[in-house]
Design a binder for these strands. Structure first.
Lengths: 117, 117
DNA sequence: AGAATGGTAAGGCATATGCCTTAGTAACGC
DNA sequence: GCGTTACTAAGGCATATGCCTTACCATTCT
């Protein structure tokens, strides 16, 4: 999706794959080396490494090579951007429903007093 | 991404495009017909319609044809699944950091009392 | 009825994605 | 040094994505 690819685009794209979400999920535990991360997945290592590359390129994780293994860890900032966007939308949606409810209640009241629109 | 495509995959994929996020964002206002939704975008209508199709197929929106225009509205449930997943991860992450902090504080205290690990 | 409006269908094109295999390279273990 | 371990590079293949254009309906306006 390099047509546009803002950080948010990339983060959501990264999270649209179950393998990558599982990695993110696992990294809540802290740092994990690539081999340990890859172990649960029935996938060739190079394929799995691509997923890590996607996560790293969009800034959801960082990694560092120590000896012959590479350790990965989450970067909450990028994750938060996406989560914050979702919460903000959720709030906007909820506010609209609240206003709608107030409006409906008001009309009901008016009707009770014989003052329809 | 029909390799896997759970609802969560599809929702995140749908949200990875800025045009589609803008549509979701706009629909917080309520129902909007396709032409009005499409108006801000410099894109042929059929291209835009594809984006709506993606949103509808993953359950983020529903639409209904009235007369010759189609009205779209948000479906919060699917959106919430994605938002909930993100919040749950965020919480797990925060909890781990809390435990880490407690652990570090404890060690600091121990050191102060001359009892290192 | 005939034209305009609001989509929808169909198909085409360039690029991206997700997987694979094979072939390296760098660090450790003996 | 030599084999093993842990990745990394390179390239290939099928399918998906995002855009386009050119038809083609329905519905509504005049």
């Amino acid at each position: 999706m390099p047509y546009h690819s803002t950080p948010l685009d990339l983060a959501f794209h990264a999270l649209s794959d179950p393998t990558r979400r599982a990695v993110v999920s696992r990294l809540a535990q802290g740092e994990v080396p690539v081999s340990a991360l890859a172990e649960p997945f029935d996938m060739a290592l190079p394929s799995f490494a691509q997923h890590l590359k996607v996560l790293e390129q969009c800034g959801l994780i960082v990694s560092e090579k120590r000896g012959r293994s590479r350790w990965c860890k989450l970067v909450p900032a990028r994750f938060d951007e996406a989560a914050d966007w979702m919460e903000a939308e959720r709030r906007r949606w909820a506010e609209r429903l609240d206003r709608l409810e107030v409006y409906l209640d008001k009309n009901e009241e008016d009707e009770a007093h014989d003052k329809p629109a």
